[in-house]
Each structure stands twice: as structure tokens, then as C-alpha cells.
């Protein structure tokens, strides 16, 4: 792909981030993650109890297992694809598309989008 470097978005530098900002992010993250994590663990325990206690409760596993197995399959596929270098130029098409559009519009006097 022949592409000008300035097409790429400039990466924001981490130096600008102040110490307070980091602290705020950490506090907010913890305030969200800790209750959410506790809730998740609680539900997980409830789930296992239901499955063990009730003969019909085992029924609830079926859909969840379905999804987990299929999701695991997808993850394996993804890992395999990454390992074989299939995502080397994932971001390429978005530049090609804009370049083509610009070329198509070049001869079109009505393509006011050129101006913006």
C-alpha cells in the first residue's frame, strides 16, 4: 500500500496525562470494577448452587454451554488467524476507500464534499 504517513492519525502522547488524572481514572475504575466483580462472583456461586441442587436446574446449563463452546471455537479461530498473520493490514482498507472516493469525486463538479 502506497500511503502517505500523514494520513495516519497522530498518536496522543501519554506525557500530557497528569498525576491527578491517573488517580481519578484508577478510583473510578475500582469503583466500577469492585462491585461489578463481587456481583459477578455472587451470581456465579448462585448459578453453581442452582445447578447442583435442582435436577431441573441443570437444564439452565444447556444454553450457556452452547454459547461458551461456540465462543471458544471462535476464539481459537481468531488466535489461529492472528498467528498466521492474517491481520497484518487490518487498517488498510479504510485509507484505500477514502482515496478511491477522492479520485471518483475529482472529475465531479457537484461533489461539494471536496470542500469540507
Amino acid at each position: 500500500m502506497v500511503r502517505q504517513e500523514d494520513n495516519r492519525p497522530a498518536m496522543s502522547s501519554p506525557e500530557g496525562r497528569s498525576r491527578t488524572k491517573t488517580w481519578v481514572i484508577w478510583v473510578v475504575a475500582m469503583a466500577i470494577l469492585i462491585p461489578a466483580g463481587l456481583g459477578f462472583v455472587d451470581k456465579l456461586v448462585q448459578f453453581f448452587r442452582t445447578v447442583q441442587s435442582d435436577s431441573e436446574g441443570a437444564f439452565a446449563i444447556m444454553p450457556i454451554l452452547n454459547y461458551l463452546i461456540i465462543a471458544a471455537g471462535m476464539v481459537c479461530l481468531l488466535v489461529w488467524a492472528i498467528a498466521h498473520g492474517m491481520f497484518r493490514d487490518v487498517e488498510g482498507p479504510k485509507y484505500t476507500m477514502l482515496e478511491r472516493e477522492a479520485q471518483l469525486d475529482r472529475d465531479d463538479p457537484l461533489a461539494w464534499s471536496q470542500q469540507a
Binding site: V2, R3, Q4, D6, N7, L98, A102, Q103, L104, D107
Partner: peptide, 23 residues
């Protein structure tokens, strides 16, 4: 910053068809 028209299209059949032909 966003003018992208200068780069030639690689690996295409070189000539870009005109928009009025396509649509």
C-alpha cells in the same frame, strides 16, 4: 491534513473508472 488524492492506487487495474459510469 486529509487530502488523500495524491497517492496512486496500487494493485488496481490502474485507471479509475469515472463516477458517472459506475453509478
Amino acid at each position: 491534513m486529509t487530502s488523500a488524492a495524491s497517492g496512486a492506487l496500487p494493485n488496481e487495474d490502474t485507471a479509475i473508472p469515472s463516477a458517472s459510469d459506475l453509478v
